Simulated assay, not measured.
Amino acid sequence: MLSSAFLQAVVGRRSVYQIANRSPISDQEIRHLVSTAILHAPSCFNSQSTRIVLLLKEEHRKFWDNASNILKAKIGEDAFHGPTEQKMKGFRNGYGSILFFEDPEPVQALADKFPAYASNFSIWAEHANAIHQYILWTALSEHGLGASLQHYSPLVDSMVVEQWNVPAKWELKAQLVFGEPTGSAREKECLSVEDRILVYGE
């Protein structure tokens, strides 16, 4: 039995691909969720290296129009048409996208300061970035938005830098697409808990 709203939100978070260009919460509330995640998500040595760009409405659609054009030029018209084109249109149909980046400067500063751990800081930064992604994915779900996490780097990196004045040094990691759900999540098959957890001391 779930004992907290947090665990219920964890269970409720799923990949939802059928979304519409609507949101049950205001833009200000969405921005508040993003601000809360960026302020309170943990990071190694409190490095705070995650960066976020929030794209709403027309800016969101501009991103997916540009991404579609780049992808079409990369793989060719014939390969693009069909399932790939429909998938990209599905993302465009959403209300917004959250772009997650890493700023390498704080990570490199830690590597210089603690050379014994230098090879680990980029790995730990990836962990922190993923925590930001998970917090916002779960929070959007809890507020009635469907979302899915996408990865179109490095294909779209230069386009993002040019279109939204993003520092070229920032490294794009993922794109969280969201909108009002128009369909349910796919059925999820879970592997056995017993095969995935070892417990000692009970």
Score class of each variant (00 low, 15 high):
residue 33 L to Q: 13
residue 2 L to W: 02
residue 154 P to I: 05
residue 107 V to N: 05
residue 22 R to Q: 15
residue 11 V to D: 11
residue 102 E to A: 11
residue 29 E to H: 14
residue 196 R to Q: 14
residue 198 L to G: 01
residue 181 P to Q: 08
residue 29 E to C: 05
residue 92 R to N: 06
residue 66 N to G: 15
residue 16 V to W: 04
residue 189 E to Q: 13
residue 78 D to A: 15
residue 28 Q to S: 14
residue 178 F to M: 10
residue 36 T to P: 00
residue 128 A to T: 01
residue 146 G to V: 05
residue 171 E to I: 14
residue 84 T to L: 15
residue 135 I to G: 00
residue 90 G to M: 07
residue 200 Y to Q: 12
residue 74 K to Q: 14
residue 172 L to E: 03
residue 35 S to I: 02
residue 40 H to Y: 15
residue 83 P to Q: 09
residue 164 W to G: 05
residue 198 L to M: 10
residue 26 S to W: 08
residue 21 N to K: 07
residue 169 K to T: 12
residue 199 V to H: 11
residue 132 H to M: 03
residue 153 S to Y: 13
residue 191 L to Q: 12
residue 98 I to A: 15
residue 46 N to G: 04
residue 8 Q to P: 00
residue 148 S to V: 14
residue 37 A to G: 07
residue 179 G to T: 03
residue 136 L to Y: 03
residue 111 A to Y: 04
residue 176 L to Y: 06
residue 140 L to K: 03
residue 123 I to H: 12
residue 125 A to M: 11
residue 138 T to E: 04
residue 185 A to H: 07
residue 38 I to C: 09
residue 12 G to L: 07
residue 181 P to S: 09
residue 202 E to H: 09
residue 70 I to S: 05
residue 30 I to M: 12
residue 21 N to M: 01
residue 41 A to Y: 03
residue 49 S to I: 01
residue 1 M to V: 08
residue 179 G to E: 02
residue 65 D to I: 01
residue 19 I to G: 07
residue 80 F to R: 07
residue 188 K to Y: 06
residue 46 N to Y: 06
residue 136 L to M: 09
residue 78 D to E: 15
residue 194 E to T: 12
residue 50 T to A: 13
residue 11 V to A: 13
residue 89 K to I: 02
residue 5 A to Q: 12
residue 59 E to Q: 15
residue 133 Q to C: 12
residue 136 L to S: 02
residue 75 I to L: 05
residue 102 E to N: 13
residue 42 P to I: 04
residue 46 N to W: 03
residue 109 A to H: 07
residue 157 D to A: 06
residue 127 H to K: 08
residue 131 I to E: 08
residue 49 S to K: 01
residue 99 L to I: 10
residue 103 D to E: 06
residue 3 S to P: 00
residue 60 H to Y: 05
residue 33 L to C: 06
residue 126 E to M: 08
residue 54 L to W: 02
residue 181 P to F: 07
residue 186 R to D: 11
residue 33 L to M: 15
residue 38 I to M: 14
residue 100 F to P: 01
residue 138 T to I: 03
residue 107 V to L: 11
residue 103 D to R: 09
residue 67 A to L: 10
residue 148 S to W: 04
residue 27 D to Q: 15
residue 176 L to H: 09
residue 9 A to M: 10
residue 193 V to G: 00
residue 186 R to H: 13
residue 172 L to F: 07
residue 20 A to V: 08
residue 132 H to W: 00
residue 152 Y to F: 15
residue 78 D to T: 13
residue 55 L to W: 06
residue 37 A to T: 04
residue 22 R to Y: 01
residue 109 A to S: 12
residue 19 I to D: 05
residue 53 V to N: 02
residue 88 M to K: 03
residue 86 Q to W: 07
residue 60 H to I: 05
residue 30 I to Y: 04
residue 118 A to T: 00
residue 86 Q to H: 09
residue 188 K to L: 11
residue 76 G to F: 09
residue 35 S to C: 03
residue 7 L to W: 10
residue 54 L to P: 00
residue 4 S to R: 09
residue 99 L to Q: 02
residue 98 I to P: 04
residue 157 D to T: 11
